[in-house]
Design a binder for these strands. Structure first.
Lengths: 203, 203
DNA sequence: TTCATAACTATACCTTTGTTTCGTAGAAGT
DNA sequence: ACTTCTACGAAACAAAGGTATAGTTATGAA
């Protein structure tokens, strides 16, 4: 939060290193020894960092130092999002029946907010958009869409499909990107998310 | 290593959960309380797990439990691989001039071994393979390829290209996947890697 | 049957570790 | 000038937490 002093910064770095090396934080005394200064000095530093909102300490508990400030947290890994393997007709999207496994997606590529899930693409209906059978489609959950968005939609309790979305006068056009597929016109469509990313594995 | 009993497995799961929730491992007593059994029981379990090579404990140190066994380690995050933004002609592939930034790729999707890098796809030469301008191509570095592989190749010191590889009698055919592009025949081709993954961002 | 291991309870050390008290000193702000 | 903050030290206290002792019960292998 506030401006961290140079010494305090060194202390955080040591805590981070210790966490990385051992999987658990150092004790106050271990911090002290490392900088070869007194227990009290280490204690003061930790408390100062706690007051500044960098750390959180569980009182009277050993080694209970958590890094809570964003800037000092380990570089964000991936986001675990559920891969819905076989989205059945008539079943709520995020139900267990649909669940296959979790996949990791680089967090940096997704917005901070929002709920995400992934689908295994079936069929070639979006072939011309470069989305092939077997691709993983990462979807951001949202219930409305803009014209031209590629969305996950469910029409009348059937299985979900990936289509391009267009709102027309008094209906919605769900357009496949494949000449062999005709557009689907409907008035009752449930939008279940918008395509954010395509991942294709060649291994 | 050995066969972990059901109880022991529960204990590991608790340690993992605690680590995830607090950033540091539980104490022996905290393990005991969670399962509402005695301190000694918890102690025995931890020691048993240590003997089996799942955990490592630092003697007489509080909360000094490390998970060392692969299978129980936190699911590996992403792999940082360099994104080569603009691969210049005549310049070594992994030189600084080509370097753009690092991207995180879910490790689970790549083999354990091998050196990886990523390219930003330019142009539509692989359009029919569902690889579009702006896509990120994750490449495994290797200098040979099998027929039909999509490879990164450099022909006579020009900029690198992504093409499908075919070895013919006394030459190599580098085939774009786009009707507007003609195949390139050459005898001097340098293979710089094989396509492993395509990532397309719609955000 | 015997022996080893797993899975515990209860209680008691005793080391580790967080915390406090009592100080010193410089820098910065009011 | 006065207070606040940073930055330390030495020593002591008390709570937290690892470890040990002395059992019990059940299971499966030898």
């Amino acid at each position: 939060m506030k401006n961290v002093t140079k010494r305090q910064h060194e202390v955080i770095l040591f805590i981070q290193d210790h966490l990385k090396a051992h999987g658990y934080p150092p004790t106050i005394r271990e911090i002290g020894s490392h900088f070869s200064f007194s227990v009290k000095a280490a204690f003061d530093h930790v408390k100062a960092l706690e007051k500044k909102g960098i750390l959180r300490c569980n009182e009277n508990r050993s080694r209970a130092i958590e890094i809570i400030h964003e800037a000092y947290l380990p570089k964000d890994e991936g986001l675990d999002i559920p891969l819905l393997g076989n989205v059945a007709a008539g079943v709520p999207l995020l139900s267990e029946e649909n669940f296959d496994r979790m996949i990791k997606v680089p967090k940096q590529m997704l917005a901070d907010t929002g709920q995400y899930y992934a689908l295994l693409v079936k069929g070639e209906s979006m072939h011309d958009a470069g989305i092939f059978d077997g691709d993983i489609a990462v979807i951001k959950y949202q219930q409305q869409a803009d014209n031209g968005d590629i969305v996950v939609a469910r029409v009348q309790d059937e299985a979900v499909t990936l289509k391009r979305f267009f709102r027309e006068n008094n209906r919605v056009r769900l357009q496949a990107e494949n000449e062999e597929y005709l557009p689907l016109y409907t008035q009752e469509v449930q939008i279940l998310g918008k395509l954010q990313m395509i991942i294709r594995d060649y291994t």
